[in-house]
Simulated scan of single mutants.
Amino acid sequence: MIRLMLVDDHAVLRDGLRNILGMEDDIEVVGEAISGDDALQKIGIIKPDIIVMDINMPNKNGVEVTGIIKKQYPNIKVLVLTMHSHDEFFMSAIREGADGYLLKDAPSDQVVAAIRTVAKGESVIHPSMTKKLLSFHQQKQTETENSSLTEREKEVLLCLVEGLSNKEIAQRLFISDKTVKIHVSKIFKKLNVKSRSQVVIYAVQNQLVPMPPGS
């Protein structure tokens, strides 16, 4: 059973999510909070597996709270569910350790699926947010000391961040689908990730993708 906590200052949103999740046999809403401070006071008592977190809230916002939670309770997963599609909120939330980022216009079945995905230790990012990362890419790629990726693997990584399929990557880089699969497999292994969403998160957290000013 996935123990879930809802953190949002809008009662209608909490009620709606609680009703939707109440129909799922493997998910249980064990607590709610209406602000950042309220959440931090309750987390230690409720001890949820996953927190569905809004960004705009009284007191501390969802990004700040996510950072605190990840430091104090690293095993608790945080899925940000927000109306904000702004780059700075997305990048900041990921850098603070959010395990997923969805927009509130996502269908209810997508939210439920995202909760299950995050519960398994994988990551979820709204498709439109993944594409935004490409706009931060410049001609010169940011290097990191702990990256052992080859130049070709870095090219493939940027394609993954853009959200391209293996076939589209092959066409862009003028290589075969089989070669793309080999590069993707090596990237996953070197970065110790299991999914494309985790690749994107790793790229943001380790600045393999240039950050927007002020983030």
Results as ranks from 00 to 15, higher is better:
161 V>T: 05
160 L>M: 13
167 K>N: 08
189 K>G: 00
144 T>W: 11
181 K>E: 10
152 R>L: 15
135 S>P: 01
167 K>M: 13
156 V>W: 00
163 G>P: 07
180 V>Y: 00
123 S>V: 01
145 E>S: 11
135 S>Q: 05
186 K>G: 03
181 K>C: 01
131 K>W: 00
188 F>T: 00
129 M>L: 15
138 Q>I: 03
119 A>G: 07
175 I>V: 15
168 E>Q: 13
189 K>Y: 01
179 T>C: 09
188 F>R: 05
155 E>N: 09
125 I>D: 04
157 L>R: 02
175 I>F: 08
154 K>P: 03
182 I>A: 06
130 T>M: 11
171 Q>L: 14
140 K>Q: 13
119 A>L: 09
153 E>L: 02
154 K>Q: 12
141 Q>F: 04
171 Q>R: 11
177 D>Y: 04
141 Q>A: 12
136 F>P: 01
188 F>V: 04
123 S>L: 00
142 T>S: 11
188 F>S: 05
152 R>W: 03
127 P>T: 01
184 V>G: 06
151 E>S: 04
149 L>T: 06
171 Q>P: 01
123 S>A: 11
151 E>F: 02
144 T>I: 09
131 K>Y: 06
163 G>H: 00
176 S>H: 10
187 I>M: 06
142 T>G: 04
171 Q>F: 11
167 K>L: 14
178 K>T: 08
156 V>P: 00
162 E>Q: 12
159 C>K: 01
190 K>T: 03
155 E>Y: 04
149 L>R: 05
168 E>I: 02
154 K>N: 14
152 R>G: 03
155 E>F: 02
125 I>N: 03
127 P>N: 07
182 I>K: 10
186 K>Q: 14
120 K>C: 06
